[in-house]
């Protein structure tokens, strides 16, 4: 077969941005490259999970709609202290099959002496905004508290959302989240694991409105013109 003939024989069987299901043949021929959520069987490219099809030039992948969070390096996540060990804290990451661990030296910028009572820093049941520094082959997760925005979450509200909706809630270059922050005057942190922390210094009412709007974004993430919708919703509900 000549090169040109090869080119002609490649064809797409599914539309870009459409939803594909496992086992569905996305493309025929050797001209496309299967990546995340797809695989090649002989000459066909087949979807290996349910999701939105994304075709970028020759590269084919699927973006999942649902599923648990898998930790990645440098992700900001919100977790709960589950246990205190000899040399650090064990962290419960909700929406995830694995636990995180904060070592002594990553827990605080000040020096922690051996044998010190670690409850003084983070006690069991407290929520922390932390960052993933390393994920091992066995999915052991190393976390750190050193960095901007990383802190103990002392007051406010915690809600759980689908981790795959997080990019939509943050918006393009943070447009959505900064809109909600500005209008409600709340402090908001979004963990990549789908945990959102909302805190307002002076108005509990605004916290509720911020949470409502975040849930609205997660629910209606597929529809267009969402930023305007949310802006309207916020203007209507915020007391001046």
């Amino acid at each position: 077969m000549t090169k040109e003939e090869k080119k002609e024989s490649s064809e797409l069987l599914a539309e870009n941005k459409s939803i594909v299901v496992p086992g569905q043949v996305i493309a025929k021929g050797m001209n496309y490259l299967p990546t995340e959520g797809t695989y090649r069987k002989e000459k066909d490219i087949i979807a290996s999970r349910m999701g939105i099809l994304n075709i970028n030039g020759k590269i084919i992948k699927t973006i999942p709609l649902k599923g648990r969070y898998m930790p990645k390096k440098n992700d900001l996540i919100i977790g709960k202290v589950r246990d205190i060990a000899m040399a650090g804290w064990s962290i419960d990451i909700s929406n995830c099959a694995y636990r995180g661990f904060i070592r002594l030296e990553d827990g605080s910028s000040s020096y922690i002496e051996r044998g010190e009572d670690l409850k003084r820093y983070f006690d069991i049941g407290e929520y922390l905004a932390t960052k993933v520094t390393n994920v091992s082959g066995q999915n052991l997760i190393d976390l750190t508290m050193k960095g901007p925005n990383l802190k103990k979450l002392k007051a406010g509200r915690i809600i759980k959302i689908n981790p795959h909706k997080v990019p939509r809630i943050i918006g393009k270059k943070g447009s959505m989240i900064s809109l909600i922050k500005r209008k409600t005057n709340c402090e908001i942190l979004i963990g990549q694991n789908g945990i959102v922390w909302v805190y307002s210094k002076d108005s509990k009412y605004n916290e509720v409105i911020a949470i409502e709007s975040i849930k609205k974004v997660a629910e209606e993430s597929n529809s267009g013109g969402l930023t305007e919708k949310i802006e309207k919703f916020l203007d209507k509900n915020i007391k001046k």
Binding site: G23, I46, R49
Partner: peptide, 11 residues
């Protein structure tokens, strides 16, 4: 299983 977003080769 497919609805849960798991990687599967087919149904």
């Amino acid at each position: 299983l497919a609805d849960a977003g798991l990687i599967m080769k087919d149904m």
